[in-house]
Lab assay of single mutants.
Amino acid sequence: TYTWNTKEEAKQAFKELLKEKRVPSNASWEQAMKMIINDPRYSALAKLSEKKQAFNAYKVQTE
Rank of each mutant, 00 (worst) to 15 (best):
T1A: 14
T1E: 15
T1N: 12
Y2S: 14
Y2T: 14
Y2L: 15
Y2W: 11
Y2C: 14
T3S: 09
T3E: 14
T3D: 12
T3F: 10
T3W: 10
W4Y: 13
W4Q: 08
W4E: 08
W4C: 09
W4R: 04
W4D: 11
W4A: 09
W4H: 06
N5R: 06
N5P: 11
N5E: 15
N5K: 11
N5T: 13
N5H: 14
T6R: 01
T6Y: 04
T6N: 09
T6H: 04
T6W: 04
T6D: 10
K7R: 07
K7M: 06
K7T: 10
K7A: 11
E8T: 08
E8I: 06
E8A: 13
E8C: 10
E8M: 06
E9M: 04
E9Q: 07
E9T: 05
E9H: 04
E9S: 05
E9A: 05
A10L: 03
A10S: 06
A10T: 03
A10W: 02
A10P: 04
A10R: 14
K11N: 14
K11I: 15
K11P: 03
K11Q: 15
Q12H: 12
Q12P: 00
A13M: 06
A13H: 09
A13I: 07
A13F: 04
F14H: 00
F14R: 00
F14L: 02
F14N: 00
F14P: 00
F14M: 02
K15L: 15
K15P: 01
K15A: 15
E16W: 04
E16C: 09
E16T: 09
E16Y: 05
E16M: 08
L17D: 00
L17Q: 00
L17V: 05
L17I: 03
L17C: 07
L17M: 12
L17R: 00
L18E: 00
L18N: 01
L18G: 01
L18H: 01
K19R: 11
K19Q: 15
K19M: 12
K19I: 15
K19Y: 13
E20D: 13
E20C: 05
E20V: 05
E20F: 06
E20I: 04
K21L: 06
K21E: 05
K21Y: 09
K21T: 09
K21N: 08
K21W: 05
K21Q: 07
R22N: 14
R22A: 11
V23T: 03
V23L: 04
V23G: 02
V23A: 01
V23K: 03
P24H: 04
P24N: 04
P24Y: 03
S25A: 13
S25C: 11
S25F: 14
S25Q: 11
S25L: 15
S25W: 11
N26S: 11
N26P: 03
N26I: 08
N26A: 08
A27N: 03
A27T: 08
A27D: 03
A27S: 09
A27V: 06
A27M: 09
A27E: 03
A27F: 11
S28T: 14
S28Y: 04
W29G: 00
W29I: 02
W29T: 01
E30K: 12
E30N: 10
E30F: 11
E30D: 13
E30P: 12
Q31C: 10
Q31W: 06
Q31F: 10
Q31L: 12
Q31E: 12
Q31V: 11
A32N: 00
M33C: 11
M33K: 14
M33H: 10
M33S: 09
M33N: 06
M33V: 14
M33A: 09
K34I: 12
K34Q: 12
K34S: 15
K34H: 11
K34F: 09
M35F: 06
M35S: 06
M35Y: 08
M35N: 04
M35A: 07
I36C: 07
I36G: 01
I36K: 00
I36M: 04
I36N: 00
I36L: 06
I36Q: 00
I37V: 08
I37R: 11
I37M: 13
N38E: 09
N38K: 11
N38A: 10
N38Q: 10
D39G: 00
D39E: 04
D39Y: 01
D39H: 01
P40M: 07
P40A: 07
P40Y: 13
P40T: 07
P40E: 08
P40W: 11
P40R: 07
P40G: 06
R41G: 02
R41Y: 01
R41F: 01
R41M: 02
R41N: 02
R41E: 01
Y42H: 02
Y42W: 12
Y42Q: 01
Y42R: 00
Y42D: 01
Y42A: 03
Y42G: 01
S43R: 11
S43V: 10
S43T: 10
S43F: 13
A44N: 03
A44K: 03
A44Y: 04
A44G: 04
L45P: 02
L45Y: 03
L45T: 01
L45S: 01
A46W: 11
A46K: 12
K47L: 14
K47S: 14
K47W: 07
K47A: 12
L48T: 09
L48R: 06
L48H: 06
L48K: 12
L48V: 08
L48S: 06
S49C: 10
S49K: 11
S49T: 07
S49N: 11
E50A: 06
E50Q: 06
E50I: 03
E50V: 03
E50Y: 04
K51I: 04
K51Y: 03
K51S: 02
K51V: 03
K51H: 02
K51D: 01
K51G: 02
K51L: 05
K52M: 11
K52H: 11
K52A: 03
K52P: 01
K52E: 08
K52T: 05
Q53R: 11
Q53C: 10
Q53D: 13
Q53H: 10
Q53M: 13
Q53S: 09
Q53L: 10
A54S: 05
A54Y: 05
A54R: 01
F55I: 03
F55T: 02
F55Q: 02
N56E: 15
N56R: 11
N56M: 11
N56L: 14
N56Q: 13
A57P: 02
A57T: 12
Y58Q: 02
Y58H: 05
Y58L: 03
Y58S: 02
Y58A: 02
Y58T: 02
Y58F: 07
Y58G: 02
K59S: 05
K59I: 14
K59W: 04
K59G: 04
K59Q: 10
K59P: 02
K59Y: 04
V60C: 14
V60R: 14
Q61K: 08
Q61M: 14
Q61F: 12
T62W: 13
T62H: 13
E63T: 13
E63I: 13
E63Q: 07
